[in-house]
Design a protein around this nucleic acid. Structure first.
Length: 103
DNA sequence: CCACTGACTACTT
DNA sequence: CAAGTAGCCAGTG
């Protein structure tokens, strides 16, 4: 297991309830400013094995990236249950819910 | 073991 | 302003 992977996992597990995080931000915090795609892979692979809160991960625009039939609605439901709200365009208010790793 | 894939992001045209 | 291309790197088959 590469340090990057564990770091990503650690970061994801550090996201508090009612907050979300973007791929790029996680990748950057893990040491790979451009490794957003790896975060994706880790989420897919590790979430099922490490029980990660994959539903707290969204894209840089504040939208859920999942395809509708995959888990989009499910992720939205999870976030709503944690207090995260969506606007008319199904977008998450990043300036309110984006978790930046501290405070 | 080699090659492909992938819930992305940022820059360039 | 909108669309397209390049870059990133590890897990899976």
């Amino acid at each position: 297991m590469e340090a990057f992977t564990r770091k990503v996992i650690s970061i994801i597990k550090s996201i508090p309830e009612g907050k979300v995080c973007t791929y790029g931000l996680i990748a950057t915090m893990a040491g790979h400013p451009h490794g957003a795609r790896q975060v994706t892979r880790i989420l897919h692979t590790m979430s099922k094995k490490y029980d990660l809160p994959w539903y707290r991960i969204i894209n840089a625009n504040g939208f859920i990236s999942l395809p509708k039939p995959d888990g989009y609605e499910e992720q939205k439901a999870f976030l709503l249950s944690e207090g995260v709200t969506f606007d008319e365009k199904d977008r998450i208010d990043l300036k309110t819910y984006l978790w930046m790793g501290s405070t």
